[in-house]
Design a protein around this nucleic acid. Structure first.
Lengths: 359, 359
DNA sequence: CATCCTTCCGTGTACGCACACGGAGAACTG
DNA sequence: CAGTTCTCCGTGTGCGTACACGGAAGGATG
């Protein structure tokens, strides 16, 4: 039998063994001096020997320290329902850490407005938090934010997106290039030889284009690598999937230009819009690969119009970002700098187990 | 700004509002009577109004109650390295709940020995635990175990495998039929028309065969459904993948009988053995689909000899089983009865994000 | 030798909750 | 009306840790 139960070794026990009072042990454990070297050494020996581990429950109860974590992310209500998912994870984590004297505040901004981004940040800086989690969508302003964080010694974590060369504690998000590569593989897998693929590139008004470019890069690199044994060709179409007329016009044009397209890859989460197009135009049998389990996408996946969705566990990204910051601030626990979420391959046959994320 | 921070409403606050002492509020909250109905009503009103939620940290510190959770599962050392994974999750959960007066003890048995199964159970029943988590591998003995649990009023959770018609609190595991169905889809996807598939059926000495049968059933049901538009044929071969000579002999025989097999599906976690066979025999270009991210499988997946692995997050199954039992015993939180783990589709291109499970 | 400071350590209180104990007052008994 | 029981409620202590405070012993200083 393997027993992993509480050692039940308390500060008091160590004190008794060492013949001192609990206060002394505490001073040693917290390295706040005022203990004779000989006594310190002896106590540390007993600590190591008994394998003392502090009771985190009692610790947090006694701790006066409270910590405030701020989150700066796009508004799920205004822009893209995708952002409900990280928010869901964040709220879940917030509930878990609430009783540990930790509060979480979410500040939202509009994805189309760099100004609202900076406004939300200065709003949260009215009471500087102990740690910041944010999604650095806008390139230049993000560096302003980073600078200000570093001036105030506020540690920060990137969620969902990241910038290179920063002193962020960590990044929780996806490996966009690799996910694009995988998308390429999936289409290659399911298509006949000499097929043609259309890559739909949303002309992003904002900084989020960064991600999309990487996905595309990964996608293309699959077909440029030796893996393209089926000699599949890629074409591109730039459009605005948020505007129905524009999208339909651009897709019509693309199909006119390349009539025998049999696979489509779209680099953002608007695959449902393409699916709607295919449905209305009566084009069947095409493979369609996109990103993210937003409701509309899930619908079309279940109806068989979207073939694959690539998931990235956005709920988990939010959840883990909060917990990592919490552990860093309250327990001095450090983390890996890069934390890629899994690249989930989701089809009609396994969507059921992904669509409602359970913690 | 959305703020999800601690309400900071304590029993003391409620007492002050109601003009009574904290002890009275406590009696009301714990429904242990000795409070005048009028007072009770008034206090409950304030509780609802202020939205009081107990501080779980302080609660568990003050709680005298301790709880012991026992786990009964196959020995990872003796049998199948697969079982290291649920154990990993269990140990992780054990660490998290340790400071909440909860201990976790793991009892192992050999998958080939129904006797060791019952032995381990009676061993753990020497001190009956407050809750039991187990993998009901052996059909009949499992019902003995269940009966004894119910006599002692010990709640139990099925992990990884389950029996129908029981009063288990919950099941954490996979949907074996659906995962087989998905495997069928994957092979169908990646094969040409009129291909032939070989299903390798391990002749399981033990009760674990249950799972394997369901996977096979799901697999076949895909090809029997209208989905088999490519007219792919399935053949079967029973063998013992644990014994190299037997396996090689049986596979040689199968390839002789059906020379143009281009896809193989194996229903348990020994895909690596088939891969080894294909490698040694120089058979390339076959699609091979199997289960579980045990090291050998991961190796062959990375080398491109295994095409797909189906994962089921065994670490999470272990972790969630413990946490669910903990929440049930210590916080009266109830759970869903059926908790399927996701059916992860894993290829060479996304294995990196699955092989080392991170909590 | 009195005074003061330094070094080292013990004691006490608080964190929010659970629960045991006991006490005040009403109600009931003989 | 003294004595007993019962109802309802306040107080106190402990869970394991953090930290403030203060105290004893010893040395330094005048």
């Amino acid at each position: 039998m393997k027993n992993k139960q509480g050692n039940k070794i308390r500060i008091k026990d160590i004190a008794a063994r060492a013949g001192v009072s609990p206060g002394t042990v505490d001073r040693v454990l917290h390295k706040r001096g005022e203990v004779a070297e000989e006594t310190r050494r002896q106590i540390m020996e007993i600590v190591d020997q008994l394998g003392y581990e502090p009771n985190l429950v009692a610790k947090s109860l006694a701790m006066k320290k409270t910590c405030r974590i701020a989150v700066l992310m796009p508004d799920p209500a205004n822009d893209n329902p995708y952002w409900e998912k990280p928010e869901f994870g964040i709220l879940h984590a917030a509930r878990e850490v609430k009783d540990f004297n930790t509060s979480v505040s979410i500040y939202n901004f509009g994805m189309n407005s760099e100004k609202s981004y900076l406004n939300a940040f200065s709003e949260l800086m009215k009471e500087p938090p102990d740690g910041l989690i944010f999604t650095p969508i806008f390139y230049h302003s993000s560096f302003d934010i980073i600078r200000e964080c570093e001036e105030h010694s506020i540690p920060y974590i990137f969620m969902n997106m990241r910038l290179d060369g920063c002193n962020n504690l960590a990044y929780f998000g996806q490996n966009a290039i690799q996910s694009g590569f995988l998308a390429g593989k999936l289409l290659h897998f399911s298509l006949q030889e000499h097929s043609k693929i259309l890559i739909v590139k949303p002309n992003s008004h904002q900084g989020t284009g960064f991600h999309l470019q990487r996905r595309e890069k990964g996608f293309l690199s699959f077909f440029l690598s030796g893996s393209n044994v089926k000699d599949i060709q890629c074409h591109e179409a730039e459009t605005d999937p948020y505007k129905r007329e524009v999208l339909f016009r651009d897709l019509d044009k693309a199909f006119e230009q390349y009539p025998n397209i049999s696979g489509i890859f779209i680099t953002n989460s608007r695959a449902s819009k393409i699916a709607q197009y295919l449905y209305e135009r009566g084009r069947k049998g095409l493979m369609l690969v996109g990103y993210d389990l937003v409701n509309e996408n899930v619908d079309f996946l279940e109806r068989g119009i979207i073939t694959f969705l690539i998931g990235q566990k956005p709920e988990e990204q939010g959840y883990k970002s909060i917990l990592a910051m919490f552990n860093y601030l309250m327990a001095d626990k450090h983390m890996e700098k890069t934390n890629y979420s899994p690249i989930d391959i989701i089809m009609k046959e396994n969507i059921d187990y992904y669509k409602n994320y359970k913690f």
